[in-house]
């Protein structure tokens, strides 16, 4: 179930140079999102940019007492996100959501692998099952390790890697994972979101292991509702390979099923 609704911007604040936190409140009663679901947000009021952009739900608040808040963490990348960053408190935007399957909620200890902005999508499962996650968090540098204090407080253990070594180990998070007993000798479920390169690396790493990895994928989207077939990924399904819609059958897939090119 998802809805098309109007929302008012409560806040759109900068966390650092190109990272912002957007808080909106739906102007009509709406359903609450699940972990790993996302919304299509209108980013401006003109035809350029034209299409809505997808953003993972970072936090949702007040759905049980009618004071609904939806929060998104986003990075300014191009025209769409730049336009979104210019919206102000009090502006209205149209929204579609919550969209997609989301992560299955873990029942026991679990492993989380976040690359950069991927942390936004994974935050809700850290919050749902506090202090049960082994979090591997990678980013380019210290500044891009966003909401570090918050996720640290929610995790059982945290391992950090940055490309420049400004915090944690120097290098990419997948290299850190390689030497971790959690991947080698364990069977805890893995939840991952981040750049395609990171997810590809993960798939190589767990190829022969019996680990279930739930990964959230990223692709350009036009409709966000499964109508345009624009956002596909190739997956194995009953011995054949088919394109599935990330917005409808995803964004979360079993890593084992994904056919990387």
């Amino acid at each position: 179930m998802s809805e098309y609704f109007k929302a008012a911007i409560i806040d759109n604040i900068s966390l650092n140079e190109d990272l912002k936190l957007l808080t909106i409140t739906p102007l009509v009663p709406t359903i609450s999102p699940g972990a790993g679901q996302f919304y299509m947000l209108q980013v401006g009021n003109t035809y350029d940019p034209l299409l809505k952009r997808p953003f993972s739900i970072f936090r949702s608040r007040g759905f049980d007492y009618g004071h609904r808040r939806l929060e998104f963490l986003y990075k300014i990348r191009g025209k769409g996100t730049l336009c979104l960053s210019n919206l102000k408190k009090g502006d209205d935007i149209y929204v579609i959501g919550p969209i997609g399957n989301g992560y299955p909620v873990p029942k026991e200890d679990f492993v989380v692998i976040a690359g950069g902005m991927g942390i936004a999508s994974l935050y809700p499962i850290l919050e749902r099952l506090k202090k049960r996650a082994y979090l591997f968090y990678g980013a380019r540098n210290k500044d891009e390790l966003i909401i570090l204090d918050e996720v640290m407080a929610l995790s059982k253990e945290i391992i950090i890697a940055t490309d420049d070594g400004s915090v944690g180990q120097k290098g990419v998070i997948i290299d850190v994972l390689k030497s971790s007993p959690l991947i080698k000798h364990n069977s805890l479920p893995v939840y991952a979101c981040g750049p395609a390169l990171m997810l590809k690396g993960l798939s190589m790493l767990v190829k022969d292991a019996k680990i279930t990895c739930y990964v959230s994928l990223d692709e350009y989207m036009a409709c966000g509702v499964g109508a345009c077939l624009g956002c596909v990924v190739k997956v194995r399904s009953q011995k054949t390979e088919v394109y599935k819609r990330i917005c409808k059958e995803g964004p979360v897939f079993d890593l084992e099923d994904i056919v990387w090119d």
Binding site: L229, Y243, D261
Partner: peptide, 9 residues
């Protein structure tokens, strides 16, 4: 269908 990316603004 075609491989992705299939759409661009």
């Amino acid at each position: 269908g075609n491989p992705p990316p299939r759409i661009v603004e």
